[in-house]
Amino acid sequence: MNYIEHVGKYFMMLGQVFKAPQKFRVFWEALFREIEQLGIKSIGIISFISFFIGGVIALQTALNISDPLIPKMLIGFATKRSIILEFAPTFCSIILAGKVGSYITSSIGSMRVTEQIDALEIMGVNSLNYLVLPKIIATIFFYPFLIILGMFLGIFGGWVAGIATGMFFEADYIKGIQYDFNSYLIFYAIVKTIVFAFIIATVPAYHGYYVRGGSLGVGKASTQSVVWTIVVIVIANYFLTQMLLT
């Protein structure tokens, strides 16, 4: 199957996802289960990485500003912009693509190879709606909060790094954070996050739903889904940056 056929099959899958919804009670229970699995359980890894990457960005910026004529407030400004524009929405989404994408593919793929999906369809259940739609809604609504948390912790991590190492003063860093604040950049990051969340939920679901080859096929599909999810995120990031920032 070539790439065009895969894309066509992917959009056909999406058409079934938003068709014939299940009973509200069943959907509600599935949604909260996915919020816990895909969102709440990802808070720890995003918090940890955001904090330390923010510190690394601040320290590297401080090390590269050696000219005494350059104001030290640029350390806080550069850290803030780097985290809001790229690190929080894009890099955190790539991390989530690896963690969440493999989980989605393996969970749906396991149901496919054990014929649980076939059993759902025999009972008249729209399996794609039942399995995929709660994941889409959970990621789209929860991940913006997760990325905002990553922004805050990244900037805070830069502040802690400066205080711990003494490479820059607290007042200069805070002044840089406050300098030229543009709320549109937050909007830009949230829009990217929503698009990436949709990709993280649907691309791995596609690979898991159409998996073949038993347990070995599930493992292979999990690897492929992570790779393709990251590729699609990087391509989408390019076009979103073109549309929203130029």
Rank of each mutant, 00 (worst) to 15 (best):
I104Y: 01
G176N: 10
F77W: 13
H6L: 14
Y184L: 14
F168R: 11
T61K: 11
Y103A: 14
Y3K: 10
G76H: 04
Y10K: 04
T139K: 09
F145P: 01
Y130S: 11
Q242D: 15
T229N: 06
V226T: 13
F32N: 06
D172W: 00
G166A: 14
G76F: 04
I233R: 11
P71Y: 01
Y3M: 11
I163G: 02
L38T: 06
K220V: 09
V203M: 13
I194A: 12
M1R: 07
L131S: 09
A119S: 14
K41E: 00
I190K: 02
L149M: 15
G8A: 08
I117R: 05
S107I: 10
L185I: 15
V203L: 14
F187S: 10
L244K: 03
T79P: 09
F142I: 13
M1Y: 07
I46P: 02
E170C: 07
E170H: 13
I177T: 08
I83Y: 10
N2T: 13
N182Q: 09
D118R: 05
S215V: 15
L153R: 09
Q37E: 13
I148C: 08
G8K: 14
S47M: 10
S107E: 15
F198M: 05
F141W: 04
K80T: 03
Y143W: 03
I117L: 05
S42N: 08
V132M: 08
A88H: 02
